[in-house]
Amino acid sequence: MALLETHDLSKAFGALTAVNAVSLRVEAGTLHSIIGPNGAGKTTLFNLLTGTFPPSAGRIVFDGSDITGTPAHRIAHLGLARSFQRTNVFPAFSLLDNVWLAAFACSKSWRGLLWRRADRYPEATAQARAALADVGLGEKADQPAREISHGEQRQLELAIALAAAPRVLLLDEPAAGLSPEETRRMVALVRALKGRYTIVLIEHKMDIIMNVSDRISVMHFGSLIAEGTPEEIQRNAEVRRAYLGGVAA
């Protein structure tokens, strides 16, 4: 069953069509990767899925209901959480508070919003600690986010997305700017999350993609040009021309 679908989704900025009639089906429980050269429209596609801006045309269907045009702050409550390509955390907050804010946002009730102490929400706090532990930052919960390394900030980025207990996880280049060692750790992390969540992954690094994906969609100049299993994509001549070039040849 497809958990997340788009139908002819398009987004134009003036004369530039960043996303062009993209129809995507993400099956529940799978890890679905989206690859493509820089400027292919991958991040714009994410921004459409998460309501950062509305599409120019087309529909987005999540779990059978049309969510086209739903504003960003509602998306998280529906069960779609995202991480950002450029680290996008709350710098002055402790790691725990970073994650807690996401956990609280999607908690069942906001009772006591104005008068109960924020540390008296055991459920949200437990959820936040679990998310931090999941990405291997459990030990550093009380450190401010601006003081941890870039690699750890990428992990935190992931933890914030996990904290809301989402049904679909949209990961935008989780390994961006990481060293080979940090990349290996991140790949292990994503692999560990596989199966527990439905994951849509944008990534540049081919070794990661081929390793972890169930299915791969290839974007080029805003359009989908191929879709298939990693083996199929590797064999696809058009993909090779457009993107893989010499790498896969």
Binding site: A72, A76, F84, N88, F90, P91, A92, A102
Partner: peptide, 15 residues
């Protein structure tokens, strides 16, 4: 305070 620190992220996590 989250809004002060990062408006975009606050919106994205659901506020």
């Amino acid at each position: 305070q989250g809004i002060r620190e990062n408006e975009v992220r606050a919106e994205a996590v659901g506020y």
